[in-house]
């Protein structure tokens, strides 16, 4: 691919990314169809369209939070709120990269390998062609073939990225450190097939405050966002649970009873942070920027238990 072809590609991708989701497309398409029909059908179609507009967002939700604002940790069973699995399975794991880990970020499952310092690999799925990867310097670009589909391979200074569209219309992007050869990267990409790698929860919850949905799930952190808020990769505006090394945590605030343990609760107008020493070198840190009251936050924290898949986060 020469420089003009590459510029055409990135220009089209950039411009496409500027177009947001159209509002009320179903309703307007149905309305337009109705204009070409006899008037006898008008009322029924409008009612159906309204019903669909109400039904589709409900169906699209990942899960329904527990419908209670009073958390009874003694009576409630432990739950792991359902999240979608990563929808592709790798054919093999590159040597030295460990096992694949599915995580949720901004409400979307992704796959990553963590092979230690400077050895990483990620896989992401997109409904539409993704924006070009960001590089600190212009990468070298190549056209390659992945399972008989055309792919765009970019080799940057610090990593490589391979993007292609699979037969069902979705787009896949594999990114890795430059230590993985281009042949290995393409081979790994070709081994990806539709499947399911489950997102493993680092915690179970006795209950989740109503109106919150999972937005970030990693082995060390979970964040719930208000159902009406836009998905994001960070923790701002969310109810977040982190597992940290006790030695790295400096609890502040006043002492509060959290189930059978004692925690420290620090509040500010914008957020509340509750730290609970688990007594095994790990500390649970629960941060709320969702307006959850003190009683709700303490009850929520009391119902959290780390799972065997949990790891402590750093930094």
């Amino acid at each position: 691919m020469d420089d003009i072809e590459h510029l055409v590609r990135v220009t089209l991708t950039d411009r496409a990314a500027e177009v947001g989701a159209p509002a009320d497309l179903v309703r307007r398409a149905r309305g337009r169809a109705r204009q070409g029909r006899r008037r006898t059908q008008a009322v029924g179609v409008a009612v159906a369209a309204a019903a669909v507009l109400l039904a589709v967002p409900m169906a699209a939700r990942l899960w329904s939070p527990v419908e209670t604002s009073t958390v009874d940790t003694a009576a409630a069973p432990a739950v792991e709120p359902p999240v979608p699995p990563f929808p592709f399975a790798p054919g093999f794991s590159p040597p030295g990269y460990g096992e694949p880990i599915a995580e949720l970020s901004a409400g979307v499952p992704g796959l990553r390998y963590d092979g230690g310092p400077e050895r990483w690999l990620t896989v992401a799925v997109f409904a539409d062609r993704p924006a070009p990867p960001r590089w600190d310097a212009a990468p070298k670009s190549y056209g390659v073939t992945v399972r008989e589909r055309k792919g765009a391979l970019e080799l940057g200074r610090t990593g490589s990225a391979l993007t292609w569209q699979v037969a069902d219309g979705r787009w896949l992007r594999v990114e890795a450190d430059r230590g993985l050869t281009r042949e290995a990267l393409i081979g790994f990409a070709a081994g990806l097939t539709p499947g399911a790698v489950p997102v493993l929860w680092p915690f179970t919850f006795a209950a989740v405050p109503p109106g919150l949905v999972p937005d970030v799930v990693t082995r060390a952190a979970v964040a719930f966002r208000p159902a009406g808020a836009a998905p994001s990769h960070g923790f701002a505006g969310k109810l977040t649970v982190l597992l940290s090394e006790t030695a790295e945590v400096s609890p502040s605030g006043r002492a509060v009873a959290v189930g059978a343990r004692t925690g420290r609760l620090a509040t500010s107008p914008r957020s509340s942070v509750l730290s609970v020493d688990l007594g095994d070198g790990r500390t649970l840190v629960v941060q709320s920027e969702t307006g959850l009251g003190e009683a709700g936050l303490v009850a929520f924290a009391a119902g959290i238990d780390p799972t065997p898949d949990a790891v402590v986060g750093h930094g």
Partner: peptide
């Protein structure tokens, strides 16, 4: 339309 409408609009 809900799932693919945005992609069709971009196209």
């Amino acid at each position: 339309v809900t799932a693919r409408g945005p992609a069709m609009l971009r196209f």
